[in-house]
Simulated scan of single mutants.
Amino acid sequence: MKAIAGIDIGGTTTQVVLCTPDLDVLDRQGVATPATEGGTTMIGAALDALRLLLDRTPARLLGVGIGAAGLVDAETGRILVVSDSFRGWAGFAVTEAVERALGVPAFLDNDVNAFLRGEVAKGAAAGGTHVLGMTLGTGVGGALWLDGSLYDGPHGAAGEIGHVPGFGDLPCTCGGRGHLETVASGRAIAARCGARTAREVAEAAHRGDPDALAAYEAAGTAVARALLITAGLLDVTTCVIGGGVARAWPLLEPPVRSALAAEPPVSGHSLHVLPALLGEDAVAIGAAARAGAELGVDMPV
């Protein structure tokens, strides 16, 4: 049996999947990310999880795709810039370490790019040719799928919808002010209500707490405005939304739909907003899809 592995290295958890060439998941394993212990330890934890999968499901490994948070250089397989949650990760040669350990080709991508690739390949936006991917987590990430392929832009920053300004005046983690992330991220939702996490705010909102409901109303309305900006600039009318905050989709969906109905795109075509389908596997499956495409394997994308 032939297989391709996908690895999602997040700040808290590393998710590893073993896939068929058709991107059906054979097995999966999640482990804690040793984010403060450096790149060698982080990659070691991911490789240990992958070896466990290969022991459980014997297969001939064709290659490995890795999705990682932060700014990455996909060509050289290195991490460029990461948040202060990581230590010894910026500058780390990810693909070199994986190839040396496993003896198969490895490919690195930004985690949000991988998320979108996964959802287009096997998820909510399967078969889509023009799609915006948005992840609402601790921050807000974005990626673009245009004309049937991922669009990075000339500087690798295309699709960074989380850092579009015009959403108030609160300071953003990037140093700017009033970005979408200051309203729609998990950090922003929690801060607005004096809570530790957005999950706590969601629980309060489900109980009818007015401040919690207002936080999700503001987040959903801001997300809709960002989607309308994207539709106006690029004529992209399909968006798939994932991330931890999006797990509270019943709270986000009503203000998103309401705001979109009040101001439809100038094209006259309705916006299709889809909750992500692949859950915690999305980034890893997308990373595996990238590896398969680079290797010339016949895959869904």
Rank of each mutant, 00 (worst) to 15 (best):
H130F: 06
L260W: 05
A49S: 14
V240I: 06
R290S: 02
V81D: 15
L277Y: 08
L146C: 02
G243K: 10
A106V: 03
P210Y: 12
E280Y: 00
V120M: 01
P254T: 00
C239W: 01
A282Y: 07
G244H: 13
F107K: 00
M1I: 06
S267T: 15
R257G: 02
A261C: 06
E119T: 15
G142I: 12
V120P: 02
A45V: 01
P171A: 10
R87E: 13
T221C: 00
W145T: 01
W145N: 05
A188D: 05
E37W: 06
G176E: 13
A215W: 03
T135Y: 02
V256I: 15
C239E: 04
L277W: 06
E294F: 02
F86G: 02
I43K: 01
E217V: 13
R78Q: 14
L260D: 06
A188Y: 05
T129E: 09
A195C: 05
A5D: 05
I7Q: 08
V240Y: 14
A124C: 11
H272Q: 14
D147I: 08
A202W: 07
D109R: 14
H130C: 03
E181D: 14
V16N: 02
A284I: 04
H272K: 14
G77P: 05
E217W: 04
P58G: 11
T33A: 08
L144M: 09
L53W: 08
G127C: 07
A284S: 06
A261H: 08
V256N: 04
F115Q: 09
R60F: 00
L102S: 05
A219Y: 03
A214I: 12
T135S: 05
A114P: 09
L295M: 14
M1V: 12
S270V: 03
